[in-house]
C-alpha cells in the first residue's frame, strides 16, 4: 500500500484580538499526525470540538485568513503546497462536507452535484449517482431548502463521485441517514478504498467507523492520541494503547457506558504536557512537564509515555 496522504506535526492556530488591539494566537490543533494509504479507510474519531473539521479544511488549504498552519502535509510523497492543492482540489481530492449549508441555496440540486463541468458525460454520472443514492428523478430540480436532511446528505455524497478522485475526505457523512443508508454509504467508501483510493472518514460514530475502517485515529483536544488498527479497538482495553482511547472504549454503551470525570480542556487553557494528563488515572509527574511525542507501539501509534 503506497502512502497517499501524510500529515506530520500539523498545528493550526488562530489570530485573535483580546481587549483592544492585543493580538493573541490560539492553537486549536496541536502536533497532529496521520497518514492515509491507498486502499485504506482511516477513521478519525473524537468528540465535538476536538478539531476534526479543521483538519479537513487544513488539508484542503481552505482555512480562514486569520488561521496559520504549521507542519507538513505530503501528498503522494511530495509537499502539498498552496499551488499544488489548488490543482488537486476537486480533481484528485474530494471533500464530502457535513451539512446542507455547503450547498448553494439558490441552485438546483442536480446542477449543483454536477459542478461546473457541463457535458453529457457529467449528466450521465450525476444521474447514476442519484440512482445509487435513491434520489429520484424529481429531486433533480429541487433547491437545497426543499431537501430533507437525509437527501441533502446523499446529494453531498454524490458530489464526491463526479470526478475520479484518489482521496476522499468525508466530514461526518452519516448523521441524518438511517442506519441502512449510512451503512450503504460507508460500504461505498469501502468499495472505493478497495479500488485503491484513500478515504479519510471524520466521524463521531465509532460503531459505524469500526464496521468499515482499517485504522482509527483518536482525537483529543486537537491532537491525535492514538492510531490503532480496528482489530485492536475491537479487542478492547488490552488491545488499545492510550488511556483516553481505553476510556472512550469503556464509555460506549455496549462496553459498560462508563464515563470518565472531567471535560476535554478548552483550547485556551490547555495543559502544558500531555493534554489528557489532568483526567488520566495513570498520569505521573513527568506527564505534565513537556509535550509527549507520538511513538510506534505494537503496530499502531500512541502519544503516551506509559502506554504498553
Amino acid at each position: 500500500m503506497s502512502k497517499l496522504l501524510e500529515v506530520i506535526d500539523m498545528s493550526i492556530s488562530f489570530k485573535m484580538y483580546e481587549k483592544g488591539f492585543r493580538q493573541s494566537y490560539t492553537q486549536v490543533i496541536n502536533n497532529l499526525c496521520i497518514k492515509v494509504s491507498r486502499g485504506e479507510i482511516l477513521a478519525i474519531v473524537g468528540s465535538s470540538g476536538s478539531g476534526k473539521s479543521l483538519l479537513a479544511h487544513g488539508i484542503l488549504g481552505l482555512l480562514p485568513n486569520n488561521a496559520t498552519m504549521t507542519g507538513k502535509i505530503l501528498y503522494e510523497g511530495k509537499g502539498l503546497t498552496e499551488k499544488r492543492i489548488e490543482e488537486l482540489r476537486g480533481k484528485k481530492i474530494a471533500l464530502v462536507p457535513q451539512s446542507v449549508t455547503y450547498l448553494d441555496p439558490l441552485m438546483r440540486i442536480a446542477k449543483q452535484v454536477r459542478g461546473n463541468v457541463k457535458n453529457e458525460e457529467r449528466i450521465r454520472k450525476q444521474k447514476e449517482s442519484f440512482r445509487r443514492y435513491d434520489l429520484c428523478e424529481n429531486s433533480e430540480k429541487l433547491f437545497p431548502y426543499q431537501l430533507s436532511g437525509g437527501m441533502a446528505r446523499r446529494a453531498l455524497i454524490c458530489t464526491a463521485e463526479q470526478e475520479d478522485v484518489d482521496l476522499i475526505i468525508a466530514d461526518e457523512p452519516t448523521p441524518g441517514l438511517d442506519i441502512e443508508l449510512a451503512m450503504k454509504t460507508l460500504r461505498y467508501f469501502r468499495e472505493l478504498a478497495d479500488k485503491g483510493k484513500g478515504v479519510l472518514l471524520i466521524t463521531h460514530d465509532i460503531d459505524l467507523a469500526l464496521n468499515v475502517a482499517d485504522n482509527i485515529a483518536v482525537f483529543y483536544a486537537g491532537t491525535t492520541v492514538e492510531i490503532t488498527p480496528v482489530s485492536d479497538f475491537l479487542k478492547g482495553e488490552e488491545g488499545l494503547r492510550h488511556p483516553y482511547t481505553k476510556a472512550l472504549f469503556n464509555a460506549m454503551p455496549q462496553n459498560g457506558f462508563k464515563a470518565v470525570k472531567g471535560y476535554q480542556p478548552y483550547y485556551k487553557d490547555l495543559p502544558k504536557g500531555c493534554l489528557y494528563s489532568p483526567r488520566c488515572t495513570i498520569a505521573k509527574e513527568e506527564c505534565s512537564k513537556s509535550k509527549i511525542p507520538m511513538r510506534q507501539l505494537r503496530g499502531g501509534m500512541v502519544r503516551c509515555i506509559y502506554a504498553t
Partner: peptide, 12 residues
C-alpha cells in the same frame, strides 16, 4: 459562506 468554501474545495 459554507457553500463558497465547498465550491473552492471542488476546485472552482
Amino acid at each position: 459562506s459554507d457553500y463558497v468554501l465547498f465550491a473552492k474545495a471542488r476546485g472552482e
